[in-house]
Simulated scan of single mutants.
Amino acid sequence: MARIGYARVSTLDQDLELQVTKLTAEGCSIIRSEKASGSKREGRAELATIIDFLRPNDELVVTRLDRLGRDTRDVLNVIHECEQRGAFFTVLDPHVSTRGEMGHLVLTVLGMVAQMERRFIKERQREGIERAKSKGIYQGGKRRVSRARVLELAAAKVPVSQIADKLSCSRMQVYRILGEPQG
């Protein structure tokens, strides 16, 4: 039986240290982490690796349910896949586990709350943007990656993956910039 921790943050500039520390203190012998959005399951290779290697009586542990995902169906599917492999799932805050009788019910409700919270955040954000646009003060999001630097590196025949590494961004951001109209 292994306790396997999963830590996730949504953006490259966020820190995983607190989650990793908590998972280590809980006795997780293996901890996989990634920086990826929790809005959908696609693109989260570390989570997929954990699920692929779960064995009977192993336990997947996360610090909070929203670290596993923000979509109720995705969260419940991950829990179901753990169970199909004979493994358990545990959330540390609040402490809920599929080892207990009430665990499934509580996790379902928590998953729905996480999804609802995500919808509220998006709605408040959209309302704020609309207000700012109506006042003529909305500028859009700030660029985090220098467009000029991406183009300079690309012109020097630096591969996209190396550009992304040098600028601490995703390859997709590099591709987006390279795909923008020049001029």
Score class of each variant (00 low, 15 high):
residue 47 L to P: 01
residue 5 G to R: 10
residue 46 E to R: 09
residue 103 G to M: 04
residue 41 R to G: 14
residue 40 K to G: 11
residue 83 E to V: 02
residue 126 R to F: 00
residue 147 R to F: 15
residue 39 S to T: 07
residue 1 M to D: 06
residue 33 S to L: 11
residue 10 S to Y: 11
residue 177 I to P: 03
residue 58 D to E: 05
residue 100 G to R: 07
residue 117 E to K: 03
residue 78 V to P: 04
residue 143 R to K: 14
residue 39 S to F: 06
residue 167 L to C: 10
residue 177 I to C: 10
residue 102 M to N: 11
residue 36 A to E: 03
residue 156 A to V: 04
residue 10 S to P: 03
residue 21 T to R: 03
residue 58 D to V: 08
residue 46 E to T: 07
residue 1 M to C: 13
residue 46 E to G: 05
residue 32 R to I: 07
residue 72 T to E: 01
residue 183 G to Y: 03
residue 57 N to F: 13
residue 19 Q to M: 07
residue 168 S to D: 06
residue 153 L to D: 08
residue 63 T to W: 05
residue 56 P to L: 05
residue 47 L to D: 06
residue 12 L to E: 09
residue 18 L to T: 01
residue 83 E to G: 12
residue 102 M to S: 13
residue 97 S to P: 07
residue 116 M to W: 09
residue 17 E to V: 06
residue 87 A to M: 10
residue 84 Q to N: 13
residue 125 Q to D: 10
residue 156 A to I: 02
residue 88 F to S: 05
residue 29 S to T: 08
residue 121 I to C: 05
residue 132 A to F: 13
residue 5 G to D: 08
residue 95 H to V: 07
residue 21 T to Q: 13
residue 26 E to W: 04
residue 108 T to Q: 15
residue 90 T to H: 08
residue 6 Y to H: 04
residue 129 I to H: 11
residue 36 A to F: 08
residue 148 A to Q: 03
residue 172 M to H: 15
residue 23 L to K: 02
residue 36 A to H: 05
residue 72 T to C: 08
residue 119 R to S: 10
residue 52 D to G: 14
residue 105 L to D: 08
residue 148 A to I: 09
residue 115 Q to Y: 07
residue 58 D to L: 05
residue 148 A to T: 00
residue 125 Q to F: 04
residue 37 S to I: 00
residue 133 K to E: 13
residue 15 D to T: 09
residue 93 D to K: 12
residue 57 N to D: 10
residue 14 Q to C: 14
residue 65 L to Q: 00
residue 162 Q to T: 14
residue 67 R to Y: 00
residue 97 S to C: 05
residue 75 V to M: 04
residue 21 T to E: 09
residue 22 K to P: 14
residue 137 I to Y: 13
residue 117 E to Y: 05
residue 128 G to P: 01
residue 62 V to D: 04
residue 91 V to L: 10
residue 104 H to W: 10
residue 152 E to W: 02
residue 26 E to I: 00
residue 155 A to P: 05
residue 12 L to Y: 07
residue 41 R to W: 07
residue 18 L to H: 03
residue 182 Q to M: 02
residue 8 R to S: 06
residue 118 R to Q: 08
residue 151 L to K: 02
residue 75 V to E: 00
residue 145 V to S: 12
residue 54 L to G: 04
residue 133 K to G: 10
residue 101 E to W: 12
residue 27 G to H: 09
residue 114 A to T: 02
residue 37 S to V: 01
residue 158 V to A: 05
residue 173 Q to N: 13
residue 153 L to K: 06
residue 50 I to M: 01
residue 178 L to M: 11
residue 57 N to M: 12
residue 104 H to A: 11
residue 30 I to T: 14
residue 4 I to T: 09
residue 121 I to Y: 01
